[in-house]
Nucleic acid binder design. Sequence first.
DNA 1: AATTTGCGTAGCTAAATAGCTACATATATA
DNA 2: TATATATGTAGCTATTTAGCTACGCAAATT
Lengths: 110, 110
Amino acid sequence: MKLRRDPFQAIADPTRRAILVLLTAQTMSAGAIASNFDVARPTISKHLTVLSECDLIQSNQQGREIFYELKVDNMKKIDQWLEQFRKIWEDRFDNLDNYLAQLQNKKTNG
Amino acid sequence: MKLRRDPFQAIADPTRRAILVLLTAQTMSAGAIASNFDVARPTISKHLTVLSECDLIQSNQQGREIFYELKVDNMKKIDQWLEQFRKIWEDRFDNLDNYLAQLQNKKTNG
DNA sequence: AATTTGCGTAGCTAAATAGCTACATATATA
DNA sequence: TATATATGTAGCTATTTAGCTACGCAAATT
């Protein structure tokens, strides 16, 4: 194995996914983020470190608080990777579409 | 920790991602899949098991070969989860769009 | 100045992961 | 029928992970 720090690894953990979702709404302090979960605060702190290392969030300190902000750009890598699969299920959807259209045709013309 | 078997976990590993991509082109036997990688065949076998458990592929035996086929449906869960982030970067794109339009306006009318 | 608050780090543990080699099993071929 | 081939399973290891408690440090409050 080898330490992987990429967006795919980042979103593998459900707590990290939840953190990311939280941050879609607004920038939040570490403590505010942690208060949303049932795990110990240092555990969340570690997740925040991982998310930073994966370049999915960025921090900026304000007084004694540290605010975390979503950095959505690296998430696009997942989106781009998904593209090839999206093609497949869109094709299938088209096929279903065609099929339904054919049925409709039969109904109308038969 | 706890054994997680979901599409997010499945795509966290780069080898598994590569297997999935391979299978977008065609159904392949276990051996044919393994021949694309530098890791031992049993390692690939294990990845195939994980992908099956995550319901991203399905196998069907033909003689002594076992063919693996992509099951794209569960991948949509990732796509759906990404939706909320996609909104954000599309908004930003719109903002850039507006900004460029404004610039254009100034150029034309100023 | 002393105390409280916010948050990261150290250091630990149990479990999961990805990899390996050796082996078992089933199907095809000679 | 004996052999070769395709593939999964057993059982091991080293590394990573997610979690914890205890602690340290800097900023705010009293």
